[in-house]
């Protein structure tokens, strides 16, 4: 394994960490289960690709536009969530994959099935970013995504989203405008997905409709569910496990879809809170161990 290879794996893993953090806002906090998150990712990637190849914008100049475009489209795509129940939302988000995929495939503006190629690599002070530089760039965005997520988890908005996500009737009685907070969740989540998309497009250098299909959505959801819905540590850990393990064990790479699907199903049945989620076996174990270290073994802390 060369350093270049490790950095490539690292860069993709970073992009998926941003995506799981993105989905964590929407599905972890606002409980709007999305099986169409790759569509939001794809919108970001295509927006970046078009701005770079057709408008000739640099990565840096395009990035704010990509974020605005994905946020606006994300809000628009989130509107059905105001009308349908949670179960139907799952179905309609599955539909999103196919709608967005079809738009990419059938409109010449988006390059059709030939995709968009020759997306330039970003430059940094006039010099193109190499593999090392791009890994560094991705890492910076992962850190930013983690920090902003940590901040958001401590805000009124997160509390309101969780309340509205769990029980709309009770949330309204707490003065929460449920529709507004659902739309906020779609907006914030889309903004992160847009950044992940731009990183992908400029790293790979090309975008194709099939990069952002239903199987990709399942991957992202499986990562988040595996790590722990509603937690930042879970989002990071899940993306790491499902992105790095298949790379390490090359044999199972061909069975990606199978693995993601199985992970999703198994976790939902046996550990719906995920490996590191609130109240999961590992989380409770870590808490016990931490208490033991802090208070000394054998001495039980109060409660």
């Amino acid at each position: 394994m060369t350093l270049g290879y490790l950095l490539t794996v690292g860069t993709f893993t970073g992009i998926f960490m941003i995506l799981t953090l993105s989905l964590n806002i929407l599905t972890g906090y606002a409980k709007q289960v999305s099986l169409g998150h790759a569509a939001f990712f794809g919108i970001g990637a295509y927006a970046a690709a078009i701005l770079a190849t057709k408008a000739g914008l640099s990565f840096w100049a395009a990035l704010p536009c990509v974020v605005v475009i994905t946020t606006v489209v994300g809000v628009f795509l989130g509107l059905p969530s105001l009308r349908v129940s949670h179960d139907f939302l799952v179905l309609s988000t599955i539909g999103l994959n196919f709608i967005v995929g079809a738009v990419f495939r059938y409109f010449p503006f988006f390059g059709g099935s030939m995709g968009i190629v020759n997306i330039p690599s970003p430059t940094f002070f006039g010099r193109p970013l190499g593999t090392v530089g791009y890994f560094g760039l991705t890492l910076v965005f992962v850190v930013l995504a983690v920090l902003t997520s940590l901040y958001f988890s401590r805000t009124w908005g997160r509390l309101a989203m969780e309340a509205a996500g769990e029980d709309e009737t009770a949330a309204k009685a707490m003065g929460i405008n449920v529709a507004k907070f659902k739309i906020y969740a779609f907006a914030i989540s889309s903004a992160y997905a847009g950044i992940a998309g731009a990183l992908w497009a400029h790293y790979v250098g090309s975008v194709f409709p099939e990069n952002f299909g239903f199987d990709r959505s399942i991957d992202i959801l499986a990562m988040l569910v595996l790590g722990g819905l509603g937690t930042i540590r879970g989002a990071i850990f899940g993306a790491f496990l499902l992105q790095v393990l298949p790379e390490a064990l090359r044999v199972i790479q061909d069975y990606r879809m199978l693995i993601s699907g199985a992970v999703l199903a198994i976790m939902m049945v046996f550990q719906p809170m995920g490996l590191l989620g609130k109240g999961s076996i590992l989380h409770v174990g870590f808490q016990r161990a931490w208490k033991a270290v802090r208070y000394g073994f054998g001495r039980a802390p109060g409660n």
Binding site: R154, L159, A160, E162, A171, M174, G175, I176
Partner: peptide, 20 residues
């Protein structure tokens, strides 16, 4: 209880302020 106490923070930029 914080969710309810937050009702004065759910407009404007309030949702993006910490509750601590």
């Amino acid at each position: 209880v914080l969710v309810a106490w937050g009702h004065r923070h759910y407009g404007g930029i309030g949702p993006f302020l910490p509750y601590a």
